[in-house]
Design a protein around this nucleic acid. Sequence first.
DNA 1: TTCTGTTTAATTGTGAACAATATTGCAATT
DNA 2: AATTGCAATATTGTTCACAATTAAACAGAA
Lengths: 206, 206
Amino acid sequence: MPQIESTANQSQDIVEQLRMEIITGRLEEGMPLREVSLAERFQVSRAPIREALKQLAHEGMVESKPNCGMRVAPASSESMQELVIPLRQTVESFALKSIFAELSEADFQEWETLLEEMRTACETRDYAQLTELDIKFHQSIVMKSPEQGLMSIWVTLVSRLRRHFLAGFQKPNDPMKVYYEHVAIVAMFRTGKLEPSMQALISNID
Amino acid sequence: MPQIESTANQSQDIVEQLRMEIITGRLEEGMPLREVSLAERFQVSRAPIREALKQLAHEGMVESKPNCGMRVAPASSESMQELVIPLRQTVESFALKSIFAELSEADFQEWETLLEEMRTACETRDYAQLTELDIKFHQSIVMKSPEQGLMSIWVTLVSRLRRHFLAGFQKPNDPMKVYYEHVAIVAMFRTGKLEPSMQALISNID
DNA sequence: TTCTGTTTAATTGTGAACAATATTGCAATT
DNA sequence: AATTGCAATATTGTTCACAATTAAACAGAA
């Protein structure tokens, strides 16, 4: 999001909430999103709801048919995902490179917290929560980058891969695999070696 | 834009107009965009203006400071452009590949028309117009692709390169160069050979 | 003068009513 | 029974009025 300083306004909160519900699959594909229903649910007027939906439409999370309403967008085609995955790898690598030298202990603490939550999500097989945490981890890397507009690009890409997340989690035999992978990533970050860190991050994106 | 069928609504028209004015440099960097002023100019209320500005903000054309208004976003950093150029090449190649087999005479006619306009723009040294036509040419390729959401990604990338256009046009000795390059691209498309066509398209993106 | 705090104005954020458009259901007709 | 036309409903698109927030102007004291 191209906001210079993010003050908490209603529509932004709604965007983040709806985005996560779509990514995690709590809101199924094709489900219509009515402005009045959402307005009642979030206890606000239609205006902030409209803004939120418009933004999600631009991100690719929902589809808009003029005068006919929004609905949760269907998953991207296989070929589309094959296009987007390397794009996402490139963007996140770039983000990591731009922040790597200035990583502080506070950054690592933030990630350690996420890792703990990820561990419990793995243990309880809470795939929706796991998806959310995975997204948040990668998002945090992009968010730390001082490059303006990188986040907008990243969000637009990730929304096309949202199905990829859930699908990827449910197949592996070892349900802790996702957790271990991210532990390895953070550990590699701590070594201070850029190239292997980028490699670890990239290999996690597929 | 993720609209399934594009009916002409006001905010969309405003988006396209403002986007072109920013890309072509008619609206200078840092210039504030006030909702009421724009509402008066376009003879509409603030709501469609707000929607247009929000969309442009997500595309990276304008920056938004909450409760403080929008302004034309400054150009991307050099490193950012170096990131985005190959991304754009990848996206447009993908788009071309997805439409190449079904190109019709109508498509070529559309391009020929653009080429003619491009020629006169080159002859009259109208760099703003030339920028607009260049964008429209590449945009048309992405637009023809049936892949949903490709346009959103493309727009987000191009907005980061908008300075690149104007700068690239004003330097070459031969002012017709831009025209010739696009003529060559379309001619290559007509041969029906995919790989060289993609190469021609890519080489034009730098 | 320079700094600080307060007031004032400008601007965005939100709410609510109205208009325009698309969808749905129903009836009349073939 | 299937189809077409029409009315009723639901939904979005737009306008206007108001609240909340921010930035600027200004006065007063060190």
